[in-house]
Design a protein around this nucleic acid. Structure first.
Lengths: 214, 214
DNA sequence: CGAGCGTTTGAACAGCGTCAAAACAAGTGG
DNA sequence: CCACTTGTTTTGACGCTGTTCAAACGCTCG
């Protein structure tokens, strides 16, 4: 049965309709992943599509120089794992313990062909991912560390619609996302706190002051 | 009539079916743009979708520090100008004299809802754009200039399926695409030529040696 | 309480950005 | 055909910013 075919992850619930996006329910399962547990690996066959229910996920690629680049952070409501070809071009792992909705790719394609509204929804989802990726490119385009980190915090705040930003990911993750070292990220955050651009009640929580939150 | 509503560009052909992608023809017009002519501007209403027939296009965003980031280069066969919201989040301009197929957005959405195959094609197009953007993020993730420029040349060669790469864009464009200055791009290319990684018959043409083309 | 991991901070170095000038290419008009 | 203009590309010198290497600090959990 389906739940057996999904090798990774643990304790899948039985197949039923899972909500991939508001107004788009597809047959799939909900699975739980531990922190740092791999969801799928590079070069594996891409038979499933995923939606974050709770927690946080990172998609990464190993670079030629041995470093890893984080292609994206995926938060509740985001989908990931779309692929044109048969193989994965990135690997994905849970950052914190996460609940993930898993839908068979063929089920998605089936729905897209049958149901015009579903096709529209899927297209809108892909466009949303496109926009998020475009914003990521803009972040990386900034030449200095301060602008990148500030933009990163802004984006998180905007996606969460809150000036209080929880950082599920480590400094190293943020660095690999922004093309910086973890030390530079740490230093920049400390400096922001020193000049009162942000408050840092703990290392994994940031509060943006009004001027930045805008 | 439609051709009047499209303000920018010149000499639009009458409305007919234009090929947006292999196997996807939609009602639209073909237009010609001069080098550096704007196709659409930031914050304008996003009523059209575009496909490059010939030439080359850049999509850009003005950054807070006054610099501009190039979000993507669009070559023949690429589509651009997809938008979820009503307004453009980037501006687009022709790099060289270009022929562009222009399709009304409502026509695209109409086709997507009616025709399952068209919806599939559109989804595939969006996924393709996603993949190109992901590769762009990977480029920008590299910490040194040499790796970024090398990756850039590799991508162009791969998209063109040729070791001979024509660069329609200026050094400044490449810099804004890679998050580098035009001087660094120029220096890096010169260095590549010096150590015979590439040959540069002219400033706008690069030939990759076998070891790099792979 | 101690072990282990993530974070912070420091000091020295290297690479890229900045500023500036020269070389080059392409087009214009005498 | 050549002098002149304009825009792009190349190259040089210098300073700053982020990386690198290293050590100390502070959580969290056994």
């Amino acid at each position: 049965m389906l739940v057996e075919e999904i090798a990774v992850g643990s304790r899948p619930t039985p197949v039923k309709l899972v909500s991939v996006a508001p107004g788009l329910a597809l047959p799939g399962v909900s699975m739980n992943f531990d922190a740092n547990e791999e969801i799928f690996g590079e070069d594996r066959t891409a038979d499933f599509v995923y939606a974050v229910v709770s927690g946080a996920v990172r998609t990464t690629r190993l670079l030629s120089d041995g470093r890893r680049q984080i292609a994206g952070f995926h938060l509740p409501g985001d989908v990931f794992g779309f692929e044109r070809g048969r193989r994965r071009r990135f690997s994905a792992a849970a950052i914190t313990p996460s609940e993930i909705a898993v839908v068979r790719r063929s089920a998605v394609e089936f729905a897209a062909e049958r149901d015009g509204e579903a096709a529209r929804q899927l297209w809108a989802l892909a466009c949303r991912e496109l926009e998020i990726l475009q914003e990521h490119v803009l972040l990386l385009g900034h030449r200095n560390a301060a602008d990148r980190v500030e933009g990163f915090l802004r984006q998180l705040a905007q996606r969460r619609s809150s000036a209080i930003v929880d950082l599920p990911m480590s400094r190293s993750d943020i660095g690999d996302y922004l093309g910086l070292t973890l030390e530079t990220v740490s230093r920049t955050l400390s400096q922001f706190a020193r000049v009162k651009i942000i408050a840092m009640p703990s290392a994994r929580r940031v509060v943006l002051c009004e001027a930045v939150a805008a």
